[in-house]
Amino acid sequence: MSSLWSLIRRDLLLAYRRRGEVGNALIFFGLVVLLFPIGIGASETLLAQIAPGLIWIAALLATLMSLDSLFKEDYQDGTLEQWTLSPHSLVAFVWARLISHWLITALPLVAVAPVLALTLNLPADAIGVLLLSLLLGTPVLMFVGAIGVALTTGLQKSSLLLPLLVLPFYIPVLIFGASAVEVSASGWSAAGQLYILAGLFVLGLTLAPFAVASALKVSVSQ
């Protein structure tokens, strides 16, 4: 447990020393949201109608983009190899890394989402559900996406491969996340969708690190 904590602290400290990179996912998130009104037209009713799905898709893509660097540095400088050789659990390492990565990249994303939602005319009543759905959904995106990252970490040219592997598995989260916001924007209770998201959250949190760890072992061995 203490090693888990020290790993998280190390990652947070490193991120704090390189503050510039942290903002990149956030800027990407804002830019994707900006593209839609420009592409579709700035009609207020139309935007309000598509806002839940739009914000969710933008958040999903931003999370995916931020994942690319998840294990890259540790793979290149050999930390990962040392870790698999050491008696410490690789699953714990993965867990710590994912938690710190979520804190660094996804949490700011969740915090900014309400502001972007307001620019898209999402009803203010739905903001709470948007926050909650993103809080439950983005960790699932991270944990599932990490499996794809672990499988492609050792590859030279993997830029397009990662979305190809991971996006199909993002569909359930997108369906329930966007639907939760949509339902609450039309004034109904989103409890059902949020419960399912919570279920996916628990499932991803408990199962995915094992898949990530075994995928990392494969990537390191090559």
Partner: peptide
């Protein structure tokens, strides 16, 4: 790697 992805 492919086997792991298939199981996932």
């Amino acid at each position: 790697a492919m086997s792991i992805l298939t199981l996932v």
